[in-house]
Simulated assay, not measured.
Amino acid sequence: MQTLSPRHVKTDEALRLGVEQGWYAIKVSGTFVSGPHDSEGDCRRKIDEIHPPVVKKKR
């Protein structure tokens, strides 16, 4: 499973990349997976939708 992380893309970088400013869920390789999101919290919620956290079972 790919680990996703939130990343904020500011205006100058957004213009260079041809994307909108905002928060993006990205792979370790730097590939954008989801976004832009209005806040880091929104981005993290989307990451949790894509890859729900692992729930450990009690024995």
Results as ranks from 00 to 15, higher is better:
Lys10Gly: 11
Val28Asn: 14
Glu13Ser: 13
Cys43Ala: 01
Asp42Thr: 08
Ser5Ala: 11
Ile26Met: 07
Pro53Ala: 03
Met1Pro: 13
Lys27Arg: 12
Arg44Gly: 00
Gly35Cys: 04
Leu17Asp: 12
Met1Ala: 15
Arg16Met: 10
Leu4Gln: 01
Lys58Asp: 02
Thr3Trp: 05
Val19Asp: 02
Val19Thr: 06
His8Asp: 03
Glu49His: 07
Asp48Thr: 09
Gly41Arg: 12
Gln21Asp: 14
Leu17Gly: 08
Arg16Ala: 15
Pro53Met: 04
Pro36Ser: 11
Glu13Leu: 15
Arg7Trp: 10
Gln2Tyr: 10
Ser39Arg: 03
Ile47Val: 08
Gln21Glu: 15
Ser29Met: 12
Gln2Gly: 09
Val28Leu: 15
Ile50Thr: 04
Pro6Ile: 01
Gln21Gly: 06
Ile47Ser: 03
Leu4Gly: 05
Val9Ile: 15
Val19Phe: 00
Ile26Pro: 00
Gly41Gln: 12
Ile26Ser: 03
Arg59Trp: 08
Val54Ala: 02
Lys27Gly: 02
Lys10Glu: 14
Val9Leu: 13
Cys43Phe: 03
Gly22Ile: 01
Ala14Met: 09
Val9Gly: 05
His51Lys: 09
Arg44Tyr: 05
Glu13Asn: 12
Val33Tyr: 00
Ser39Asp: 03
Glu20Asp: 12
Gly18His: 13
Cys43Ser: 01
Arg7Tyr: 11
Val19Trp: 02
Val19Ala: 01
Thr3Arg: 11
Val19Gln: 01
Asp48Arg: 14
Asp12Cys: 09
Val9His: 06
Tyr24Lys: 01
Thr11Trp: 14
Asp48Ser: 15
Trp23Asp: 05
Asp38Leu: 10
Lys58Ile: 02
Lys56Arg: 12
Asp38Gln: 12
Glu13Val: 13
Ala25Leu: 02
Arg59Thr: 06
Tyr24Pro: 00
Arg7Thr: 09
Phe32Val: 06
Pro53Ile: 04
Met1Ser: 14
Lys56Met: 11
Val33Ala: 06
Lys27Leu: 09
Thr11Leu: 14
Trp23Met: 02
Pro53Asp: 03
Gly30Asp: 11
Ser29Tyr: 05
Pro53Glu: 04
Val54Gly: 06
Arg7Asn: 10
Pro36Gln: 10
Ser39Lys: 01
Gln21Pro: 07
Arg45Gln: 08
Leu15His: 15
Arg44Val: 07
